[in-house]
Structures are given as C-alpha cells and as structure tokens.
Computed example of a mutant assay.
Amino acid sequence: MSGRKTAIVVAPGRGTYGKSELGSIARLHGQRFADAIAGFDAERRDRGQPTVTELDGADRFSVATHMRGDVAAPLIYTATALDYLSIDREAYDIAATLGNSMGWYSALALGGAVSIADGFRIANAMGLNSQTHGPGGQILMQVVDDDWRPVPGLRDTLLDMVAAIDARADHALALSIDLAGMLVLAGNEEGLAALLAEAPPTPGRDPLRLAGHGPFHTPLMAGSSQKAKAELPPSLFARPALPMVDGRGHIWRRFSSDPLQMWDYSFGHQILAPYDFALSVQVAVKEFAPQAIILPGPGDTLGGAIAQALIGIEWQGMKSKADFMARQASDPILLSMGRTEQRALVTGDK
C-alpha cells in the first residue's frame, strides 16, 4: 500500500507576486530549472518583452511595473509551474488541479491539458490580453467576520445591490470572483463608484480597489476573449493527464474531456463570466477527498480563501477560523509553498 498522501494542487492568480516574492524565482529554481526559465525568457525576448529573469532580478519591486498584467502573469505562472514540478512525488499523489482566475491557465499546464511551455505562452499572452478592456476594474469586499463565519444576509444584500446598480443606464457591475469569505465585484467606473457610495458597512476591512486590475470575468472583457481566441489556437490543447476543476465547479476528466471545449471555455466563459473559486475548491475536496491541499507560490495570500471555502461546507468538521487554525497546528491540511516550513513538507528538501 502506497505511503503517499493524496493531494490537490491550487494555482494562485493575480496579485500574488509582490515585494516579498521579488527574486524568489531565481533563488528557489534558478539552478534546478534553468532550462525551463531560459525557455520562458526566450518566449518573452521574441516578443520584445523584458524576460522573467530580468523582472524577477530587478533591484526593487515596482507596483507600476510588477503588478501590470503583462508582467504579473508570466512571473506568477513561472513561480507556480516550477513549484509544482518541485513537489515530492514520492510523498504526494496529485489527484487534481484547479486555480483562481488567472490560475486556471496554470492549472491547465499542471493538469497536462497543455504543456508547461505552452502554459507559459498562454499566461504571457493573456497577461497582455487582459489589458484589452474598457474603463473599469475590481473591488474586493469581505462578507465574513473575524472568525470567518458568514455575516448573516450580507452576501445577498451586496449581490442584490450589484444587480440593481447594473440595471441603471451607463452602469455595469457584476460578481467577478467568489472567494468564499470575500467577493470580488467588477464593472465600469460608474458602476464601481455607485457601489462604493451605496454599499453597507462590511467587516474586517474597507472595500479595496485592486490596483492594476480590469473588470475581469465580465462581458466588459469581450476584447480580451476575442484576442485570445485569435492568437491561441485549439491545437495547444489535449486531454488532461489529471482531472481539473474549473471556475464553474466543472470537472474536466482525463478520458472524457474534449480539448476543443476546454479551449472554448478557457478563452470564452472563463474570461467573460464570474469565476466561482470557492465552489471549485469545494467540488475538488468532495470529489477527490485529499489528505493535503498544496498551494504553490508565489506568496500564500490565497490560503485564507481556501480555508474559508472549506469552512463554508464544514469540511472535516471545520466551522470557523479557530477550527481551521487548530487543524493546521495538529495535522495541516493546507500546505503553502510560500511558507518555508510548509514548503519543506511538500518538496522533501531539508
């Protein structure tokens, strides 16, 4: 009987490569994965873009540069993909992959639906394509209390307000990403201004406008979808080697998935409709019953959303932040590769 733990891998999305991650690609992967990084650099160089090595090796982190889509996406993909390749396969049996928003493109490569090299090509192209949209952006709003329990009625109140604002002339507003304990709402400037002016008090933090983010996962991204389908052909896709859970909670299985449908979803619905990250996590743990959830880098900011998704279905008896933290202290279910001590558990490095 195998001693390996069953695990699912969750690929992070935008906003995860920050000041603390600068230089981490070279530090963690520069020797072992030099050839892969050189290939990614060549892809960027051929397009007249600064290379991953140059961006990761910058003297200091620049919000104006490193948070821009065409820079953030390739950095995040590189860190995620190389972390995934660093997982100790003698210790972990990977049952499925999933991701948050842009992390879906990483999940495609981790799950084998596209190659690691083509995954970089997709992430790099989508970093540029994601900037093809009209004026607008995203706002993050918290809907749970300090113990990660839902505030009664707040989620429904916000979503009803979003629908009412979206119905107004010249206003666009919609749910962009469901992060369990937080909602990312996206729209044009008129819609975002109305939301900030009319939203009820929320716990924990004030509504946060996400720097450098467009109105992702809404129809305002139609230009991005069109460019993606024109530039990235279906021939990049094959049946996955592992099951993958998308932003609808749909499972793309190894032998029954149609590559053309995956391509259409990835550059259609995934761009233009809400991404239900919480549901994808909940479906994955129910379907594959993992003994570990591995969160590759960069960073570990997605850990809270994963935990809140688990609490939302009371996974293995966890009903609150206190329950989750107690579980992490005794028998960690979530292993973040952005944390040194947890990384060592995943890679087997001493």
Rank of each mutant, 00 (worst) to 15 (best):
P259R: 10
R253S: 14
A278W: 01
E231S: 13
P201L: 12
P203A: 09
A230N: 10
L242H: 15
R253N: 09
R239H: 11
P274G: 03
L208W: 07
G223R: 04
F277A: 01
G212Q: 05
S225Y: 02
R253V: 07
P215Q: 05
Q270A: 15
Y275E: 03
S257I: 08
F255D: 11
E231R: 11
S235H: 02
G212W: 08
T202R: 05
A222V: 13
G204N: 10
T202V: 15
G247D: 03
L232E: 07
R239N: 11
G247Y: 08
T218I: 07
L210G: 01
F255W: 10
H213C: 08
S224G: 02
G214C: 09
H217S: 09
G204W: 02
A238L: 04
I271R: 01
F216D: 03
P207H: 04
A238H: 14
R253E: 13
R254S: 02
M221N: 04
L272S: 09
L260H: 11
A273N: 13
R253F: 01
S224K: 00
P240H: 11
A230F: 03
Y275I: 07
F277C: 00
R248F: 10
G249N: 10
P219K: 08
D246T: 02
Q226C: 06
A278I: 00
P259N: 07
H269A: 11
P274S: 05
H213P: 00
F267M: 02
P233A: 10
H269F: 04
L232G: 03
S257F: 12
S235P: 02
Q270P: 03
G212M: 03
A211T: 14
F216H: 13
S225C: 06
A222L: 12
G212D: 01
T218H: 09
G223Q: 03
F216S: 14
G268L: 02
L272C: 08
D246K: 06
P201C: 12
H217Q: 10
Y265M: 05
W263S: 12
S224N: 03
R248D: 09
S256D: 14
D206I: 00
D276S: 06
I251K: 01
